[in-house]
Design a protein around this nucleic acid. Structure first.
Lengths: 230, 230
DNA sequence: CTATATTTGTTTAAATCTTACGCATTTAGA
DNA sequence: TCTAAATGCGTAAGATTTAAACAAATATAG
């Protein structure tokens, strides 16, 4: 058994946000790196006495000053032995969704610039981070269809049209507005609020909210969320 | 940054097999451990210059003498800092499916006993391997419904009734035999062979085979395999 | 040799779900 | 007051799923 194993363990965070029909991802750049240093996913080495999940939360907080409650493990990248040219490093990637309010807080820290990028304006990234981001996008798209995670990207109360646009934008598909509404409502996991939207034009729209308790209760009974598209 | 990180990286293999309406998993036991040493998943530390996938293939070969072409990454277990009491170890778990012919080869090596266990006769396992196996089972069940992986557990040619029983057994569900056949056939990814089964009783049955090329071609066109149950 | 049990394979009818729209409603603004 | 824009409701045709009936081919018991 290789007693002299010398492999470092890192974590990386893919944090997605959404605002104005745009998907965003949170990136950092070393403040004191070379001028043209690459942007990268937040992340860093795991400490000896720290769980992987605690590590990714800590690094994200340190590097961007953003806190996220729920992380999901995405994948562990370690097949390319030279993915980090300095040392053998394997990275456990986690992804998280935050609601739009977090997009406005100044994400920053002493050592790093942190910035939200529109997903189609992401520059070339450091290491294999472009690949990691690609895999995260795949997962996001897949999960959107079989778990009600779209709500995590929206404010607590939202319009049906916002939910609908979120699906169209992220999945890059057309949806029939009326069938989409009917489908979501049939699940009985979103409910009307008393409030109406501050309207721009057209008929004022009801604000809805996601009932997570109800969703969890239904899950126990064998309910399965699914949105399909042509 | 913790320059003195001291975390070991291991891989573990969950290898499933299937025979006679039974799902099996491959386990090992140290030959020179204490008498009552636990059974465990095959696995071990990753070498410095070796990809994670190569590592799991090597360990499996060394410990059980079984070779597997396709491994899928399952999950990385590293949140319990003391999952291995000797050292901080994180483990990247991989899972694989082998066809029934491999169940008969003597799986063994110098240093370990290797043995196939029926899935409901698995003993208490070392470390957190019971949890890992549980997660692998979940993944197997899920994938069975949305990818045609059942064929990987069967011989190259098989009976519809065998495929059907595999689904019933692993998912622990009842299926209508006739609707199941109709559904699978509608995908046009299995085809008849000229051969018939060596029969026991009843009407002789055609042997079928999975056409992987056709499946891949359909995938490109947007086809999506799915078997649902009540 | 015949009847029966057993397993395979085909077909159908009803129920359910999806898809593709039509159209009324409610507001802002010209 | 008319029009544009967006919301909200309903419905008919088509596709899919579900629940079976039934026919075919063989082994085996008597």
């Amino acid at each position: 058994m290789s007693e002299n194993q010398n492999i470092k363990v890192a974590v990386d965070a893919i944090v997605f946000g959404y605002q104005n029909n745009q998907l965003y991802v949170l990136l950092i750049q070393q403040k004191f790196g070379t001028k043209d240093s690459y942007w990268a996913l937040p992340g860093g080495l795991v400490q000896n006495d720290e769980s992987l999940e605690d590590a990714v939360k800590r690094e994200l907080k340190e590097e961007t000053n953003i806190s996220v409650n729920y992380f999901e493990q995405l994948f562990t990248f370690g097949d390319d032995v030279f993915r980090d040219p300095r040392n053998r490093v394997i990275s456990v990637a986690y992804f998280a969704l935050v609601d739009s309010s977090k997009l406005n807080v100044k994400a920053d820290s002493d050592a790093e610039n942190a910035q939200w990028f529109k997903i189609d304006e992401v520059p070339a990234l450091a290491f294999d981070h472009t690949i990691i981001l690609g895999k995260a996008m795949e997962r996001l798209k897949a999960k959107l269809t079989y778990e009600p995670i779209g709500f995590d990207l929206l404010p607590k109360v939202f319009l049906f049209s916002e939910l609908e646009n979120l699906y169209c934008t992220i999945l890059e598909k057309e949806i029939d507005r009326r069938n989409f509404r009917k489908k979501i409502l049939s699940f009985e996991i979103v409910e009307e609020t008393d409030h109406f939207s501050p309207l721009k034009s057209g008929r004022p729209a009801k604000l809805f909210k996601f009932n997570k308790q109800k969703y969890n209760a239904l899950l126990d009974k064998g309910f399965h969320f699914e949105i399909k598209f042509a």
